[in-house]
Computed example of a mutant assay.
Amino acid sequence: MTEQQGQPEQQPEKKEKKSLSLNVVSNKPHRGFGAGTIDLSQVSCVIIDEGVAYIDDGAMHAKSKVEKGIKFSPDKANTPNGRTCWIVWVAVERTDAGTQYAGVTACEMLIDKEARRGWKILPDHVNKLDAALKRKIKLEELAAEEKAALRKLLTQHNEEWWNHSSDELKQALAPESL
């Protein structure tokens, strides 16, 4: 209270700001303002490089081990000596039967570490990420060695998830289709 007026002092009302930012990599689902717009918490990134597949969630922000320090161009001619690497988007889903690999898509890139140059088509990467989120399997561009490396990683990472996965995924990565 102010002594002169005998009334309580009023504070200006503070408005709560609502942010549009998304926490892309999170352990818990997004709730509140903007909920339902996109949920990437169930997506992981796999890199396939020289026949070896490994998880590298840095690829979500183009900061995977192979992408660091590389200047990318949408023109393939700018990376004449590049080696082919793949980003594979893997969406995981929990069902009544158990957790499974639900959506798996692959995107090509060329990397030339010496020249610090690379090639990738960003809209293709975004569209393939979207397809994985929509539970689609798109792996036909992978060579036999790359499919084998991806299958090995997925089964070793969690064999139970692999066992619960769709027949479509298993057929896409089956040794006989290689």
Rank of each mutant, 00 (worst) to 15 (best):
E108Q: 12
V88Y: 03
L153R: 07
K128V: 03
R94F: 06
K128F: 10
N23R: 14
P29R: 12
I121T: 03
E16T: 15
E50I: 01
S64Q: 03
D39H: 13
G34H: 13
R117M: 09
A106T: 10
L142G: 02
V25M: 15
M1V: 13
D75P: 02
L110W: 02
D124H: 08
Q171S: 08
P12S: 12
G69Y: 12
G34I: 12
R116I: 02
I137Y: 03
Q11P: 02
S41K: 14
T84P: 04
S19E: 06
D130L: 11
Y54T: 09
K138V: 10
D75I: 04
R31V: 14
Q4M: 11
L150K: 03
T84G: 00
V104C: 09
H157C: 04
E146A: 15
P175N: 08
Q42M: 07
L110N: 05
V46Q: 01
N81S: 07
K14T: 07
E67L: 00
A62R: 13
P8C: 06
T84I: 14
A149C: 05
V66E: 11
V92P: 03
V24K: 11
G34R: 13
D112G: 00
G36C: 06
E93H: 11
I70Q: 08
G103L: 06
E67W: 03
L154Y: 01
E141W: 05
R135W: 10
